[in-house]
Amino acid sequence: MLKVCHLYPDLLNLYGDKGNVIAFLQRCRWRQIPVELVEVNVGEPVNFHDIDFLFLGGGSDREQNLMAADLLARKDSLVEAINQGLVVLAICGGYQMLGQYYLTTDGQRIPGLGILDHYTKAGNARLIGNVIIDMKIGAETIKVVGFENHSGQTFIGNMEPLGKVITGYGNNGQDGLEGVRHKNVFGSYLHGPLLPKNSKLTDLFIKLSLERRGIKQDLLPLEDRFEDQAVKVMVDRHIK
């Protein structure tokens, strides 16, 4: 049985981010992989050691402030689970929160969880639009598509990015990188939601979650014609 945890679904669900959880669950069920969803809101208990896939979405500044203290109180348990292979997908505000700090336009440094080494600073303009990145999964390079809308500019230093920007802004609109990957933690600015649009990425998370349970196996292939065609349309539209 795989256990999926959606953290703060009532607060962090911009641009249909919950669709990431739905896609993960459905692709498991199509393969007859037993899977269970746990939704955890502020103040509710969760044991990260029992979780295989953790999703943390994006929200407005108000929503993020409401849950920041709650998440900080869970940090030690979360870090321990990450070191033991917990698979994490964090989008936009959730991605920023895993880093060292957020620097506001007036110079105020708002501490993050400090789980990853990246930091974010507020920009003067919003980075908005469709994004296409090249991402490596093993020996294969795939196109990943999504939508971004953020003013924060994130810098990941020497960490591994999720992918290289083909079109769009990505982390900061400067270095050509999007997202971050550290162990089984993935951060990204791509809304849309991300996983229903990118079946191979969803399957990577399922495979890593199974491996966390000590199960190493090839996933049963699914009929992904429509998903693949949707990605192709986006790529053809934006890459000449």
Rank of each mutant, 00 (worst) to 15 (best):
I115R: 07
N158S: 15
G173N: 11
G157M: 09
G129Q: 08
R126Y: 15
K164H: 12
N172D: 10
D175I: 06
L98C: 02
L127D: 07
G129T: 09
P161N: 04
I166L: 11
Y101T: 00
V165P: 00
G157H: 15
N130G: 12
G157R: 15
H150L: 05
V131G: 07
P111G: 13
T105K: 11
K136C: 13
V165F: 01
T154I: 02
Q100M: 07
Q153P: 03
G163M: 02
A125C: 14
G107N: 10
H118T: 07
L127P: 04
R109K: 14
V145K: 05
G173F: 02
S151T: 12
T105V: 14
E140H: 12
L113V: 06
T167H: 08
H150D: 01
D134S: 13
Y101P: 00
G168Q: 04
N171E: 02
G168I: 00
A139M: 10
Y119H: 14
D117R: 13
A139V: 13
G170N: 08
L98T: 00
D106F: 12
P161T: 01
I142F: 07
L127I: 06
Y102K: 06
V145F: 03
Y119W: 14
G107L: 10
T104F: 04
L98N: 00
V144W: 00
K164C: 07
I156M: 02
D117S: 15
I142N: 08
N130A: 11
G168N: 04
I142M: 01
I166E: 13
N172T: 03
Y102H: 08
I132V: 15
M159P: 06
G157V: 13
R126H: 11
I166Y: 10
M159H: 14
P161L: 03
G99V: 03
Y119L: 08
H150Q: 07
H118Q: 14
K136H: 10
N130V: 09
T104E: 07
M135K: 12
L113C: 03
K136G: 09
G170D: 08
H150T: 03
G157S: 15
G163S: 07
M159C: 10
V165Q: 01
H118L: 04
A122H: 15
F155H: 09
N124L: 15
P161H: 05
S151R: 10
K136M: 13
A122C: 12
L127W: 01
V145S: 09
G146N: 03
V165S: 06
I142K: 02
M135I: 12
K121Y: 10
T154F: 01
G129C: 12
R126M: 06
P111T: 09
G107F: 05
S151Q: 10
G129W: 11
G138L: 06
